[in-house]
Amino acid sequence: MRNFLFFILFFPSILVLSQEEDTLHWLTNLEEAQKIAKKQDKSILVYFNGSDWCAPCKMLKEDFFNSEEFQQKAENLVLVMIDYPRRVDIISEAQMEYNKQVMEKYNAEKTFPKLLGLNYKGKVLAHISGYSPLRDTTHHFHFIEKILQ
């Protein structure tokens, strides 16, 4: 009986947690994304993120990336996240060095959050920086439509 009660109480919490998981597949290597984009004839969305310190990045994730509308549009994109955390335990040292190199090329001003649309050759199609405290995602969806054309 005790095991049954535990199962009844514990199982629903697992379902809730699994539903909250990020369903998007973010790559962390731009060259890999370019190969996939060429093969699948898709544009690349690069997201420059400060995962542990950037409040607008966290709001953008909640309001934009976690939205059903974005998740549908993301099926037509190759997603790349270039994280620039302050804590050293979030990504490996090698990943941090790689991310710095990508930032030097595509986000030298270190703007967060920044979204960049690229073709498979690495040519910039469009970009958008920042996120308003008003939490209006209209401009971000216009940006997505622009790179999907």
Rank of each mutant, 00 (worst) to 15 (best):
L5C: 02
F6R: 12
F6N: 05
L9A: 12
F10C: 13
S13H: 12
S13E: 10
I14C: 09
L15A: 10
V16R: 13
Q19D: 12
E20Q: 14
D22P: 01
D22V: 05
H25Q: 14
T28I: 12
E31S: 11
A33C: 10
K35V: 12
K39T: 07
D41I: 02
K42S: 01
S43T: 14
S43P: 13
V46F: 01
V46D: 00
F48H: 04
G50E: 05
G50S: 04
C54Y: 04
A55V: 15
P56N: 03
K58V: 08
F64R: 07
F65T: 06
F65V: 04
N66H: 13
E69K: 15
E69W: 07
F70T: 02
Q72S: 07
L77I: 05
V78A: 02
L79A: 03
M81D: 08
D83S: 13
Y84T: 15
Y84L: 09
R86K: 11
V88T: 15
V88S: 13
I90K: 03
I90V: 15
I90Y: 06
A94D: 14
Q95E: 13
Q95S: 15
E97Y: 09
Y98L: 10
Y98S: 13
N99G: 07
N99K: 03
N99E: 03
K100D: 04
Q101H: 10
Q101G: 09
E104M: 00
Y106D: 01
N107Y: 00
T111D: 11
T111C: 11
F112Y: 14
F112C: 15
K114P: 09
L115W: 06
L115T: 12
L116P: 02
G117D: 04
G117V: 12
N119K: 12
K121I: 04
K121M: 12
K121G: 01
V124L: 06
L125M: 06
L125Y: 03
A126W: 01
I128R: 04
Y131N: 11
S132H: 11
P133M: 14
